[in-house]
Design a protein around this nucleic acid. Sequence first.
DNA 1: AAAGATTGAGTTGTCAATCTTA
DNA 2: TAAGATTGACAACTCAATCTTT
Lengths: 166, 166
Amino acid sequence: LYDTTLGDDVSSAFPDDELRQLLEQLVRMGNLLEPGATARHDHAGIQVSTSEVFALGRLAEAGAQSQQELGAHLGLEKSTVSRLVAGMAERGWLSRERQPDNRRLYRVALTDLGRDVARRVGADLREHHARLLGGLTAAEREGLAVGLSGLVRVLRDHHARRHPAR
Amino acid sequence: LYDTTLGDDVSSAFPDDELRQLLEQLVRMGNLLEPGATARHDHAGIQVSTSEVFALGRLAEAGAQSQQELGAHLGLEKSTVSRLVAGMAERGWLSRERQPDNRRLYRVALTDLGRDVARRVGADLREHHARLLGGLTAAEREGLAVGLSGLVRVLRDHHARRHPAR
DNA sequence: AAAGATTGAGTTGTCAATCTTA
DNA sequence: TAAGATTGACAACTCAATCTTT
């Protein structure tokens, strides 16, 4: 007796290893949180990329802003933002006007159409996330809330240390 | 005294919303778990892409296997695996031989050099993750372990439902 | 025909070089 | 010169079409 299955995990023993493995799986599945994050997908019948989803959300929330500001919030390079915003403007979702008092900056803002798209996409996204989170137990939800807030904090610090100018 | 920096985070109300926002931040920071996941980066002085890191890990753990098997485990398209493996073979990290009894399949396996690279990259990765996790409180680590395991499960189900044949 | 792997075209991102306005 | 935005070249994906072997 007394448990013969002692070394049930000889290879990589200590408990932190479980967390590490979870982290790796999370990275691997990262793109699954947003369905097909790499490509365009459908939200409420509208074809959008993941960055467009976040850009719509940010603009709806924070109002008109420069491309730099938008990029900083989205964690994207200014060049990426340039093309992203150009595409969204072409679809009529936002307007780009040079800021009068400093014509180096663009003032990017949602159009009426853009606000409508943002509303519908946002609702669909919230519904999608709610469905995912509904598959968790209460303990898992609580754990996630505590754990993720810590993880986001740590990652933000780490990122700030490596990209001080951003 | 007594901390005047009260309202540092008024944000938005009900608890589920907090989790949703965390999820969104996680998606946005996804690439930060692996430094610069989109491009090549450095592990122990070796230039690797994130997929190469995972491929090295999988091959070191599971031994020789087909490209399909590798792709299934990594969550990558067979076309991506084809190019990934071609690149790693060119660098001398793995061998590709047609499986004798069924020459449609490749048998992909680490070379001696590949095993060495896998060992060094793996050690560096573990160290990196340990450092990140070290920035969490004990409660956050416990919460993460519980919450992430649930999240990974839910995402896997969701993915399986959308891509039945993979 | 079906299964495994490859190739071609398109998307989203990066970094480095350039253009424009201050 | 510097700051904001754009353009060019390249990396890593995906999907669809094709090649090869069974």
